[in-house]
């Protein structure tokens, strides 16, 4: 089998990919308290997502996404990493 050459591209540098950061356990707890929500209520991001693979986040991690917004300049959004297999 021929192995594909390592890709020169870094998708994190693409202008349509916002900044993704993994929250620490303490930050995660603080966030859930602040927005008064459970893990289940957070929007999801699948562990098969190319960005998640790249930043090596694990299921259960909360990702802080700093989006560029046309209307607000910058907005912060949170997604929790979910396993694709468990997901219907």
């Amino acid at each position: 089998m021929i192995m594909a050459a390592p890709s020169k591209i870094d998708i994190l540098k693409h202008e349509l990919v916002p900044k993704h950061e993994i929250l620490t356990a303490a930050e995660k707890k603080e966030l859930l308290e602040k927005v008064n929500a459970t893990e289940k209520q957070l929007p999801k991001i699948l562990d098969s997502d190319p960005v998640i693979k790249k930043i090596e986040a694990k299921p259960g991690d909360v990702i802080k996404i700093t989006r560029k917004s046309q209307t607000a300049g910058e907005t912060v959004y949170y997604r929790i990493v979910a396993e694709k297999t468990k997901h219907h």
Partner: peptide, 28 residues
């Protein structure tokens, strides 16, 4: 296309959002 030399992949895109999702993730 991203792999082709000379292509500025950071600004290139397509109109198929599924392809964008598969290559660049849900946020893209």
């Amino acid at each position: 296309v991203f792999e082709i030399e000379g292509v500025d992949y950071a600004r290139s895109f397509c109109n198929n959002m599924f392809e964008m999702y598969e290559v660049l993730g849900i946020e893209a």
